[in-house]
């Protein structure tokens, strides 16, 4: 009964939606995602006018404000190219919530078409580009935290893992309760800091308990949350966005 996912043929050109969090905090991850796609012979278009998908306001109940920002993205991604998003959360917003946001408005059709073109980065690499990865890095143990949106809204948890499994020197360790939320939840972390703190500390403990050298996530919100806590605890564990991690290990000139 779940929606069957359909992927297009490998296109010539794609749009890249970098997300606001990546823009400000993890631009190298955003760039790595673009380079991974470009390396497969595809032109990556990065509209300079893009800003944010609108999710922060949307999830806070400020719909008018969210719609205004989302509308602006509809303008930016007008052409019929697939839109690749290096975040399950923002991709989920555009793919699943834009249609409801614009339901009954004059932008409804535009929003629906755009939603149908949105792909999360790892599913795009895996299913559309059918990417093969050659691991050039030294052996490393990693733990992966898949965001709730990537797992449940976009359904790309297996894609995250499949890409990491292609990397021959990477050992993927499984933390306990790996499906559980890290406690970020956007403004939740600000409105209910005590609950959020409890959740992130348990998540961080589960990750450190694996003995991993690096924490990987496909979403910068979770990364910022968990890594921020690990750093606060002065835990010696690296954190990387999955795009950066893959790019760093498969890009010849960097090694």
């Amino acid at each position: 009964m779940t929606e069957e996912k359909r992927y297009p043929e490998k296109p010539e050109k794609v749009y890249y939606f970098g997300t606001c969090l990546i823009d400000l905090l993890y631009p190298e991850a955003g760039l790595a995602g673009m380079q991974l796609i470009q390396r497969e012979g595809i032109e990556v278009v990065f509209p300079q006018d893009q800003t944010c998908c609108g999710q922060p306001a949307w999830n806070s109940g400020y719909r008018v404000e969210a719609i205004r920002v989302a509308q602006h993205q509809l303008d930016c991604f007008n052409e019929d190219y697939p839109i690749v998003v290096p975040s399950g959360s923002c991709a989920g917003m555009m793919r699943h919530h834009y249609p409801e946001m614009f339901k009954g408005s004059t932008d409804e059709l535009r929003a629906n078409t755009l939603a149908g073109r949105v792909f999360e980065l790892t599913e795009f690499l895996e299913h559309v580009l059918k990417i093969t990865l050659e691991d050039l890095g030294s052996p490393v143990k990693v733990a992966l935290h898949t965001s709730c949106a990537a797992r449940r809204e976009m359904g790309v948890a297996t894609e995250h893992e499949a890409l990491l499994k292609q990397l021959s020197n990477v050992e993927l360790l499984q933390q306990s309760r790996k499906e559980e939320c890290c406690g970020f939840g956007g403004t939740f972390a600000v409105k209910h800091p005590a609950i959020s703190a409890e959740m992130v500390s348990e998540k961080a403990n589960a990750i450190t308990a694996t003995g991993a050298d690096t924490l990987i996530s496909g979403d910068c919100g979770c990364l910022m949350n968990i890594a921020g806590h690990l750093e606060y605890q002065e835990k010696q564990i690296d954190s990387r966005h999955i795009a950066s991690f893959i790019w760093e290990r498969t890009h010849a000139t960097e090694r």
């Binding site: 631009p27 955003g30 949350n225």
Partner: peptide
């Protein structure tokens, strides 16, 4: 948590 690390340049600039 430690405060998030703001990048030197945005993705817009890097792109």
């Amino acid at each position: 948590r430690k405060a998030p690390h703001i990048a030197q340049k945005t993705l817009h600039e890097l792109a």
